[in-house]
Write a protein that binds this DNA or RNA. Structure first.
Lengths: 209, 209
DNA sequence: AAAAAAATTAAACAAATGTTTGATTAGTTT
DNA sequence: AAACTAATCAAACATTTGTTTAATTTTTTT
């Protein structure tokens, strides 16, 4: 295995374990065992456990902003079409990278001044700015109403999808869907969330239900 | 200090630290130092660190279900009035017990078979059931439309409020409100969330915006 | 006031933690 | 093929972890 592949193997193993047991709840030996490597390799490749987390965040967050930017700067679609794309994108992203988002949601709650917190913060601020521009564009063109609380609206989308993705096992048990295959459950959930949020966003952005 | 007060002092100190640094990120010595007691007292009173967490959950979750039940079983109000009370209650609860909810949101993400997970699960299932009954009551009386996805609707309320409460420091920084006093910020946020969710719930439950 | 029970303490315990060391092996360059 | 660099490993390192012990002090009961 070449160097890059081995680093990625470690990152992805750490991602799974951090997601399930938390950063502090996962030891470097857990990661090493699961990835089938020697513990020393983590320090050797990343410097420390903390920096491994940083590497994970960089690895995952890297292309998100780029994709979001490419999507929203596209001139072809109407503001409402872009909003719907945004909804689809977030739902898809949270589901496809659920482990990463579990870690992120935990890290956001935790108060500490780390490089990772700094990364999350920049990441969120930048994405929020992009979306703000989209909404304002729609307001200028008359597609959307005035007086939209953008941070609250975004918190609704992100908070809800994050909550459902991170507490999926609870959700399934409460609604007696433990036996449903993972893939089927996620497909159903994505569909439900899409309908739900397209309705909500339309209602809020245009005052039509 | 009498026994009960001292136990509560430990529980509340642990609550603060668990919220800020996570369960695994907080050592029993951190708690002892902060509470001004000897480390051994934690084992003496609670048996273990894990059981201290259990005690914390019991301590906090105890009256919630009772309050919710008392509120929803009240015959005086209309279904929509009850829904609005429910919204107010959740927003108030998450803000007033933000430390507790930070811990809870982290614990929900973590996969482990502990007494605490069991507690959370029973707690959530029971509350969900109460709300389901309320919505169905409104559907029977003709106040609410059919085809309401109750779990998704509740996830929207809980997920969003939880997201805002747990990531408050991010939210404030992103929106340049770091200098606003805590109390003022929370008052503003509660008001915004109330308006927001009363609008959303009305739109979804009655198809009117 | 004596006896019993409960609370508190510093110290010790073994296990687990993240990281480093120094030696060995594998791979690449000269 | 020799020299050099990179990768891998088991072992050791110093801390920190949650918990227990055994002695002492405080409080309650008799």
């Amino acid at each position: 295995m070449v160097r890059r592949n081995k680093k990625i193997k470690i990152i992805e193993t750490a991602e799974k374990l951090f997601a399930d047991k938390g950063f502090d709840g996962t030891s470097v030996r857990d990661i090493a065992d699961e990835a089938g490597i020697n513990v020393a390799m983590i320090s050797y490749y990343f410097g420390s456990k903390e920096k491994l987390l940083e590497a994970l965040f960089t690895y995952r967050a890297e292309d998100t902003t780029v994709k979001l930017e490419g999507m929203l700067k596209n001139k072809e679609q109407s503001p409402m079409e872009k909003v719907n794309m945004l909804i689809e994108y977030y739902i898809e992203k949270f589901h496809n990278q659920s482990s990463f988002h579990k870690i992120m949601s935990r890290e956001q709650v935790t108060i500490k001044h780390s490089a990772t917190s700094e990364l999350i913060h920049r990441f969120k601020k930048h994405n929020q700015q992009l979306i703000k521009e989209l909404i304002q564009e729609g307001q200028k063109s008359g597609d959307f109403v005035k007086n939209i609380d953008i941070p609250i609206l975004m918190a609704t989308l992100i908070g809800t999808v994050s909550h459902i993705v991170t507490t999926q096992h609870f959700y399934r048990e409460i609604n007696n869907q433990q036996d449903m295959p993972d893939e089927q459950f996620q497909k159903m959930m994505k569909k439900k969330l899409n309908t739900h949020f397209k309705f909500i966003f339309k209602a809020i952005l245009t005052n039509e239900a």
